[in-house]
């Protein structure tokens, strides 16, 4: 202890105190402040970048979900549209078919009517024609028959013969 106290130099202590004070002041002012400031800034920057990345990721996910939803909606819409179109198509076909059917039916009916009318007309004409012809033939036959008296008499004879008055 004595040697220790003997070796203790108050002058060195004083010099060291002054130098250390100066050194701490200089280091804090010119070195540690800017260094720690920059380190903090950098760490905050890194933290900020990480946060931003996280945020971007979340936004991306949101966007993706949005897209998915939109896509889903579009798909549904498309399906609905397709369904509608299909329905429309079948309806149109059915309508067309029905109309065609009715048209055809109508035409057939008209045709049948026309045919019937024609037939009737033809029949009537035929009848009148046949009647005329029959009259003509009958006239001719009668005329022919009546011109030959013998024959007539013969015939009457034949017929009388046949018609036995029993």
């Amino acid at each position: 202890m004595e040697t220790l106290l003997n070796d203790f130099s108050p002058g060195l202590f004083a010099v060291q105190t002054v130098l250390l004070l100066l050194f701490i002041f200089l280091m804090v002012k010119f070195a540690w402040k800017p260094i720690l400031g920059s380190l903090n800034e950098r760490e905050e920057g890194i933290q900020g970048a990480l946060d931003a990345a996280e945020k971007a990721k979340r936004e991306m996910a949101n966007l993706q979900a949005d897209n998915e939803r939109l896509l889903q909606e579009a798909r549904l819409e498309r399906e609905a549209m397709l369904k509608e179109a299909r329905e429309l198509k079948s309806k149109m076909i059915a309508d067309a078919e029905a109309e065609a059917q009715s048209q055809a039916n109508k035409m057939i009916a008209q045709a049948q009517e026309a045919i019937t009318n024609e037939k009737k007309a033809a029949m009537a004409e035929l009848k009148s024609h046949v009647a005329g012809l029959s009259l003509d033939i009958a006239e001719k036959v009668v005329r022919n028959e009546l011109s030959n008296k013998d024959k007539q008499l013969q015939l009457v004879e034949d017929m009388l013969a046949e018609a036995t008055l029993n």
Partner: peptide, 14 residues
């Protein structure tokens, strides 16, 4: 020496 080193480090950061 320390002051020189750390002063330079501070300057590099800037």
């Amino acid at each position: 020496l320390l002051f020189f080193w750390f002063f330079r480090l501070a300057k590099q950061y800037k």
